[in-house]
Simulated scan of single mutants.
Amino acid sequence: MLESTSHKYLDFVRFPELYNWSVQYLNDSKIRFNKKYPLVRIGEFLTRNKTAVTIQDEPVYQRVTIRVRNGGVVPRDEVKGANIGTKKQYVISSGQFILSKIDARNGAMGIIPESLDGAIVTQDFLAYDIDRTRINPQYLVLISTTKQFIDFCQSCSSGTTNRQRVDEAKFLSIRIPLPSLDEQNRLVKDFNNIMTFIKMEEMKVIDIEVKAVVAVREALGVALYPGYTEEQLIRLTNYAAIDSWSVPKILLAGHSPFGESKYKCKKLSELAFINPRTDLSMLNDTDEMSFIPMEDISDDYGEWQNKKIGKKADVKGYTKFQNGDIIWARITPCMQNGKSALLSNLINGKGYGLRGIKPNV
C-alpha cells in the first residue's frame, strides 16, 4: 500500500496491487525495504512444483521437516510406505525453495539440500523451482530471514491459532528488492564472509574461556576433571562429616565437587549466610524495587540484564535480596546453566524475583 503525504487518515493502493480486499492485509503488506533496488513479486521467479507420488507399502521413504526461525530443511525420518497414512505425497528436489504452510509465519522455509533430493512431503509443504537467471537462491534465503518478510508471512496466514496456514497467492504476491544477479552474488559473498569472521571470533572467545578455566584451576591446585572416583564395595567416612542419613549424601560427605586442591575446602554455609532475611520495613508498598526474573540472569557471564522495575507490593511469593547479595538459581535447568550474579545498584538497594538460593557474603 502506498503511503500518502497529503492525507493524514487515508492510504492509497494501486489497483494492480490489490490482491486482497482485506484492509488489515493491505496495511500489513507494507514490507519496509528501502527503494535502492526495484521491488519484484516473488511469483515472478518461483514456480510451484507439484510432483505427486502414490506411496507404496514396501519402499522406504525419506521425509523432511523445516525448522522454524530459518533453521533450514533437515531430515525428519525414514519410514516404510505401509506406515505412512497419507498415500498422496509430493517429491521434492535439491535446490528448490520450500516452505511450511503452517509454520511459514515462524520462518519455516529454506533451500532443499542435495542430501534430501527425492524426499517426500505432504500438501502442507509448498516446493518451488527457482529461476536462477533472476535470483540467487541464497539471496532469497537471506531476504526470507528478515523480520519484515516473516511479519508479512504472518499477515498471509489464517486459521486457528496453532494451525494457521499461509495463503499461497498472498505469499507469491510479496515484493522483495531484486538487484542485478551480480549484485546479489556480491551481497551473498559479503554476508558469508561476515559470518565466517564471526565464527572465527567465537572460536577465539571459546579458546580464551578454556584457557582462563585451566589457569584458575591450576592456581587453586584443583584437578582439571574432578569428580572421578573408583568403584568401591565398602566406603568409610568420618562420623563428624555426616550431615544426614542419606546414602548418596554420606558418599559425598567431606568431598569437594572441585576434587583435590592444595587449599583447605570449607562448606559454603561457613562462608555465607544462605537465604538471609531481607528487611523491607523502610519501604512503602508503592516504593520501587528492582525486579529480576530468572531469564534476566545471563547464563554465560553472571550478569543481571534488562533492568526491570517493580514495587514492594508485588514481592509476595518471590525471593527478596539487596545490594551485595549473590543470587544463584536452584531450579532446573537454570541451575545447570549456571544462572548466578553478584547484585549491585538495585533500586532503593532492594530487589526481588529470581527464586533461588541467596547467599549473603
Rank of each mutant, 00 (worst) to 15 (best):
E58A: 03
V74G: 06
V53E: 15
D279E: 13
V91L: 05
E3K: 01
Q56S: 08
N360E: 12
A52N: 14
I84E: 11
V188H: 14
T86L: 12
G110D: 12
I194L: 10
C156M: 01
Q322S: 05
L283D: 10
S93Y: 10
F97W: 06
Y225M: 13
G353A: 06
T278K: 08
S244H: 13
N323K: 01
R76L: 11
K147A: 08
G324E: 10
P179Y: 10
N323R: 00
L283F: 11
R76M: 10
Y301Q: 06
L252S: 07
F171S: 05
V23I: 05
I135G: 04
T133S: 15
N275H: 10
I292T: 05
L283I: 05
I92T: 08
G159R: 05
C153K: 00
Y318F: 12
R330M: 07
R32F: 07
I274P: 09
I327V: 00
S155Q: 14
G43F: 00
M294A: 05
W304D: 09
Y225R: 14
G254Y: 14
V64G: 07
E58I: 03
L126Y: 12
S340Q: 10
R175M: 04
S246T: 09
Q62A: 06
T278S: 13
R41W: 02
V361L: 15
F152V: 00
E3H: 06
G81I: 02
Y301L: 03
N49R: 09
N238P: 09
P59I: 05
A215D: 15
D296R: 01
Q232S: 11
T196R: 02
L268V: 08
N106D: 15
N360S: 12
E201K: 00
L181V: 04
R175D: 09
K358R: 15
R14G: 07
I120F: 11
D296A: 01
K350M: 03
M289L: 05
F125Q: 13
Y19F: 08
D167F: 00
E231L: 06
L343D: 15
Q322C: 01
Q123G: 09
I327F: 01
C156Y: 04
S6H: 02
N136I: 02
V188S: 12
Q24N: 13
V222H: 12
R277W: 09
L271T: 04
S281D: 13
Y239D: 10
K320H: 03
I112N: 08
K312D: 04
Q322M: 04
E303T: 02
Q123F: 09
R235K: 14
G324A: 03
R330F: 00
I274Q: 13
A272G: 06
R63E: 12
I174P: 07
D117H: 14
N306V: 00
G85H: 11
D190E: 15
P16N: 11
A329N: 15
L26K: 02
K311N: 12
